[in-house]
């Protein structure tokens, strides 16, 4: 079964990697998972190029859910989605959820084989409405 992929985008590579470690502990290798952090110069920040590479690495025909931390991570992720080939654009979403908890719960939902919109909704239930 194709499971939804999870991408973690933080300003800090350490945060992204740490969140990914927590996801792996929960779901093992059942879910395609990639992370990135840092700006194009390697400082704190985010990079469209790295986000595109992470989406590619976690690619699944079931789609990819992106978890982000602060504003620039969201803006750069949305920019990256628009730069994907047209047939992939509709299969990638940015979840409005806390990055660590969101990644873990989204991956848990994805590991059960849920569709992309369910994965996203489950993660977003963590955010105050």
């Amino acid at each position: 079964m194709n499971r939804v992929g999870i991408v973690i985008v933080s300003h800090s590579p350490k945060v992204a990697e740490g969140a990914a470690d927590m996801v792996r502990q929960m779901v093992g290798n059942e879910v395609p998972l990639a992370w990135c952090g840092g700006d194009p110069a390697g400082n704190l920040g985010t990079s469209v190029e790295l986000i595109l590479a992470a989406v590619e690495a976690a690619w699944s025909d079931a789609g990819v859910a992106i978890l982000v931390d602060l504003g620039g991570a969201e803006t750069n992720s949305e920019m990256a989605i628009e730069m994907l080939p047209a047939e992939r654009q509709g299969k990638v979403v940015v979840c409005n959820a806390p990055i660590v908890e969101g990644a873990v719960i989204a991956a848990t939902e994805a590991s059960g084989g849920s569709a992309l919109d369910i994965v996203r909704r489950t993660a977003e239930e963590l955010s105050p409405q």
Partner: peptide
């Protein structure tokens, strides 16, 4: 600019 600026300014000025 999108690829090199980073931050939120890259996608904003790039767009």
């Amino acid at each position: 600019l999108v690829m090199k600026v980073g931050g939120a300014s890259g996608p904003l000025f790039g767009t």
